[in-house]
Nucleic acid binder design. Structure first.
Lengths: 149, 149
DNA sequence: CTGCACCCTCCTATCGTGGGAGGGTCAAGT
DNA sequence: ACTTGACCCTCCCACGATAGGAGGGTGCAG
């Protein structure tokens, strides 16, 4: 199996297949006489594991750890689980941040009439003197002047 | 105001202040005789705008567009709104992806006993032959062999 | 006048991904 | 056999946003 076929079989781009090998995430593929990389079914299986882990948002270092555990018959499932739950917490943290951004933006967009007039609460909020948006700390509309970079 | 004070005043690191200038997001700061950058209150105001936009997850290019609109008195609020809502949709897309990852991982982790034994559904799912996790397409436990990279 | 905090530029790295140049290999069709 | 087109190789560059450091100048306070 050449690298192009391996790419189709795994869903990993040719570029990334070479990259994963280069950084040592997977062992270097065997080479044909021509210098072409040759992939076995086992290689493909490993690479699919890698792709699935990536699809779940794991970083390369974490995938390396998962691969180790996967290939180590004497692993403890607790190790895998702690890796996974730590990752879940990171993802949840990111989701919380996204949620906050979305909530703020939706609030602002909702209050923006969105017509031809220049008046816009979105820009007003971004340009406001105080950091906190929609806080009671806000004095009565401290209109910022139009600044120059 | 020197760059260090500007950094404290805006919450943008010194490194990033220089970077934003370099890439043309903000106009180059004036220079003192010594070569030190000098920031005016207006500069600070602009930079705070930038930081708030960044806090809302806007990319630098989008922030440039927002700055343009902010500084352009004849803008239409519709332009700002469409920029904001497009951004919201992107954030929501990312959140959906996160949600999916989290759901899958939590499901898997929940089914992993997490003890000293090696048996672990997380690894089994990552190593499964079929792409789709927990699908009815799954034949009865096609246990993958332990692959070699 | 010395020392320390600060500033300057320039270079490097991160992380995962893609693009391209310049060149070799393979298989199929003429 | 020869050509052609699809593939493969390595090596380098780019991104986006951020941080770190080296090597050197500036400014102020003791």
């Amino acid at each position: 199996m050449n690298i192009g076929e391996a790419s189709k079989a795994t869903g990993i781009s040719v570029k990334m297949l070479r990259y994963y090998e280069e950084i040592g995430l997977v062992r270097p593929a065997l080479r044909a006489y021509s210098g072409y990389r040759v992939y076995s079914d086992k290689n493909i299986e490993t690479l699919r594991f890698v792709r699935r882990a990536r699809d779940l948002g794991f970083q390369v270092k974490q995938i390396a750890a998962l691969l180790d555990l996967w290939q180590n018959g004497s692993r403890a499932s607790a190790d895998v689980k702690s890796l996974a739950t730590a990752h879940v917490q990171e993802l949840e943290q990111r989701r919380r941040e996204l949620d906050e951004m979305i909530a703020t933006l939706e609030h602002l967009a909702h209050h923006c009439h969105g017509d031809h007039r220049p008046d816009c609460p979105i820009l007003q909020s971004l340009g406001a003197e105080e950091t906190a948006p929609q806080k009671s700390t806000r004095k009565k509309a401290p209109r910022p002047t139009f600044a120059v970079a």
